[in-house]
């Protein structure tokens, strides 16, 4: 999964999609995940980094990751052209 090109995200979690004019806010972990996606990290890499950093288990990471990706997709922030 990739973030749509041109989508910008600020350090404090403000996302702006210049193609649609929509804006969103995400929490610090959301910022981290979006930055990972922008760096073209794989899904497995992202989950591993989150698991290493936060005091949680892989099942929770798995669920939250898919929830978050679903939200990004529904908000037209993912580049689905490669799917």
């Amino acid at each position: 999964m990739k973030i749509s090109k041109n989508v910008s995200i600020s350090e404090n979690g403000f996302i702006f999609n210049p193609t649609t004019g929509e804006s969103f806010t995400v929490n610090p972990i959301g910022v981290e995940i979006i930055n990972f996606l922008k760096e073209n990290k794989t899904e497995a890499d992202i989950k591993k980094q989150l698991l290493d950093k936060y005091n949680t288990d892989s099942a929770t990471i798995e669920k939250d990751y898919y929830d978050f990706m679903h939200m990004l997709k529904a908000s037209n922030l993912l580049d689905t052209s490669a799917e």
Partner: peptide, 16 residues
């Protein structure tokens, strides 16, 4: 931001 008359009360330039 749209008024009840459908008029823009706020807007943003986009790249499309």
């Amino acid at each position: 931001y749209i008024t009840d008359k459908g008029k823009a009360w706020g807007g943003i330039t986009i790249e499309d």
